[in-house]
Write a protein that binds this DNA or RNA. Structure first.
Lengths: 112, 112
DNA sequence: AACGTTCATCGTATATCGACGATAGACGAT
DNA sequence: ATCGTCTATCGTCGATATACGATGAACGTT
């Protein structure tokens, strides 16, 4: 799955770029950023919790949570009636590292 | 324009979230990530340069470049016929720092 | 002057996003 | 069994994103 770092330069393109873009897309919405912040302050939140914080319809929040889960940034587990959402700090850290890597690539490969 | 870093914690919410989301949105497209990588390898590129790398129509590339410029990730300067696009490494680094800050916030505020 | 090059913009078509209300399923409480 | 709560999903709607070709402006070259 992980190719060597140098291969990333050969195929700079679609593979890694697509993957990173997909994760950043999940992050690129204010409501989802706020959801992550809220989740980070609690061990696990149910959907209603988040709804009360955000002033958005329950269905909308549910969709945002789904996006975050599908992007791998939030873990999901079904309680009885509730659904528990828990932030995935490792995945978050992974994105941070990926962005830092991209920036590093862009800054280190200065032409002259 | 730049509030103090601690103010970011007070008003974690919409303002900074929106700003970060907007910049991440500019980054969340594979073509734009590849454009940034390409720009990083050259002092400045004209639109046609990028077109030849990307296998996209010239108008499409022009639009992607416009998105990057409007997000502040790329600087624009008009040559004679050409348009020169240059990566803004500081802005890139700023985004990286913002993402790292968000992740830090999410990881440091563990409930227990 | 006529032509080629480079680029931004316009118009268009399609797809996806973001938000909502309505609804149905699952579950606990009465 | 009935009611209330919590949630996911469906359908819908408007807005936005993405891609393209066509076009015209600006400029250099012949």
């Amino acid at each position: 799955m992980n190719v060597s770092p140098s291969a990333d330069f050969n195929e700079c393109g679609s593979a890694s770029a697509k993957a990173l873009a997909a994760k950043l897309a999940a992050l690129s919405h204010p409501a989802r950023i706020e959801i992550l912040k809220h989740l980070s302050g609690n061990r696990a939140c149910c959907c209603k919790d988040v709804v009360q914080q955000l002033d958005l319809a329950q269905s909308t929040v549910s969709q945002h949570l789904k996006v975050l889960v599908e992007a791998g940034l939030v873990r999901f587990s079904a309680e009885r009636q509730r659904s528990l959402y828990e932030i995935d700090r490792e995945a978050l850290a992974g994105i941070s590292a990926s962005v830092a890597g991209l920036v590093d690539t862009c800054c280190s490969s200065r032409p002259t």
